[in-house]
Computed example of a mutant assay.
Amino acid sequence: MQIANQKMSIGLINPKNPVNVASILRAAGCYGVASVFYTGQRYRFAKDFNADTKAFHKVIPTIGVDDLKEVVPEGASVVAVELVEGATPLPLFEHPSNAFYLLGPEDGSIGEDVLSWCDHVVYVPTFSCMNLAATANVLLYDRLSKSDYVSGDALIRQSRDTNNKSKIK
Rank of each mutant, 00 (worst) to 15 (best):
M1K: 12
M1S: 15
Q2V: 06
A4D: 07
Q6E: 04
Q6M: 14
Q6N: 01
K7H: 04
M8K: 06
S9N: 15
I10C: 04
N17W: 09
P18D: 05
V19F: 13
N20C: 11
N20T: 03
S23V: 01
Y31A: 05
A34G: 10
F37G: 01
T39K: 07
G40S: 09
G40D: 13
Q41A: 14
R42D: 14
R42Y: 13
R42I: 06
F45Q: 15
D48N: 14
K58M: 08
I63W: 04
D66T: 06
D66H: 14
K69I: 05
K69N: 11
G75T: 05
S77V: 05
S77A: 12
V78R: 08
V78Y: 12
V79C: 05
V79F: 02
E82G: 05
E85H: 11
G86E: 11
A87M: 03
P96M: 11
P96V: 01
N98C: 08
A99L: 02
L103P: 04
E106R: 04
E106T: 07
D107R: 06
G108H: 06
I110Q: 05
I110T: 01
D113M: 05
L115Y: 03
S116E: 04
H120L: 11
T126S: 01
C129A: 10
M130T: 06
M130I: 08
A134Q: 15
A136D: 07
L139T: 03
L140S: 13
D142H: 00
Y149E: 03
S151W: 05
G152T: 03
D153P: 09
L155P: 06
R157Y: 15
T162W: 13
N164F: 10
I168P: 15
K169N: 15
